[in-house]
């Protein structure tokens, strides 16, 4: 088996999930300058909602595709409601406050969502009922499953759709205008509060898709899973250049590949001292290197706002 190719494939699948979560961080940062630390936990809620829906429907005899669609729909709905509520209740009142206040609020919201989820779902791991039997596909020395292919294709479709939406739709243009100058966007007739709320809708919905993917991919959910996933997705957003949508996609994919390659080779490199369970080190090494060497990220803004 070709470890290199295998880890590239695994990394791209994992990275596409990171990329979807990273979009939520980067879009909110772009428009509000706020790092929404609760975003990872919204993804976690999506995962647990999806698990519950699958558990409820697993005995019903419905085809797996229908069960997954229902789980995804429910997860998106719940996450959109939570995302918009958090923006309205926790962040909007602090819009003109010093930057530290909303940041600390975001951490507070994150903890609130985690422990609310622990109340609803408990603190134990929840596993996915038997739903799919992924078939293996061999490809030039690497093996992957059809599930991995579907995850990657769906993530790619979501990303392409989002890029098109932001570039070409009326609301997408208003989002970019609001990001650059909310006052002037207001003068054009843009209700910037609605655009900001809509950004949370988009970020939460896309994060929910990612959450369901995690459940399908790993078959597990846990009230604390949003923490590490969120940190890594945030790292991906910083790697790509926080605030930059295409950057978040690139950063997510890159981080997934870096992490998978590192996990694949870490045993050999460290002479067997470190195992692949140390893979998380690499995401944060990447974060530190980016922050030190290139804080604006790979695709960070270079044209200044002030013309």
């Amino acid at each position: 088996m070709d470890i290199f190719l295998q880890q590239i494939v695994n990394g791209l699948v994992l990275g596409s999930i990171y990329a979807l979560v990273a979009l939520g961080y980067t879009m909110v940062y772009g428009i509000l300058g706020l790092i929404n630390f609760a975003h990872g936990d919204i993804v976690m809620v999506a995962a647990l909602v999806a698990l519950t829906v699958v558990q409820l429907l697993s005995g019903s005899g419905l085809p797996p595709a229908v069960v997954i669609a229902a789980a995804m729909g429910a997860a998106m709905l719940v996450c959109i409601v939570i995302g918009v509520t958090v923006e309205r209740v926790a962040y909007r009142p602090l819009r003109r406050a010093p930057r530290l206040a909303p940041l600390i609020t975001a951490i507070g919201v994150s903890i609130l969502i985690q422990y609310s989820a622990a109340l609803v779902w408990g603190k134990q791991y929840i596993s996915l009922p038997e739903l799919l039997q992924p078939t293996s596909i061999a490809f030039g020395g690497a093996q992957f499953t059809d599930l991995q292919v579907y995850i990657f294709l769906l993530a790619a479709a979501v990303m392409a759709g989002l890029l098109w939406f932001i570039k070409s739709s009326r609301i997408g243009r208003a989002m970019r205008a609001t990001e650059q100058n909310p006052d002037i966007a207001g003068l054009m007739g843009v209700d910037t509060n609605r655009i900001i709320a809509f950004t949370f809708v988009l970020g939460s919905a896309i994060g929910a898709i990612a959450g369901v993917m995690v459940v399908l991919y790993y078959g597990l959910g846990h009230y604390f899973m949003g923490f590490m996933l969120g940190l890594k997705a945030f790292t991906a957003a910083v790697l790509g250049g926080i605030g930059n949508v295409a950057g978040a996609m690139l950063g997510g994919l890159l981080l997934g590949v870096i992490e998978s390659l590192a996990a694949g080779y870490i045993g050999d490199l460290s002479g067997g001292v470190l195992g692949s369970n140390y893979r998380d080190i690499f995401a944060f090494l990447v974060l530190i290197f980016v922050l030190v060497l290139r804080p604006s990220g790979l695709m960070g803004q270079r044209i200044s706002d002030r013309a």
């Binding site: 650059q180 002037i184 003068l187």
Partner: peptide, 30 residues
């Protein structure tokens, strides 16, 4: 502001306030 512009009042702000990272056409679309 977003209500007033609908009633027919438009401001050309001091310092112009164009959207620097939008194209000219996109600025007009805004």
């Amino acid at each position: 502001a977003h209500e007033l512009v609908k009633s027919g009042i438009a401001l050309v702000p001091e310092g112009r306030g164009v959207f620097a990272r939008l194209t000219i056409e996109e600025n007009l679309a805004m």
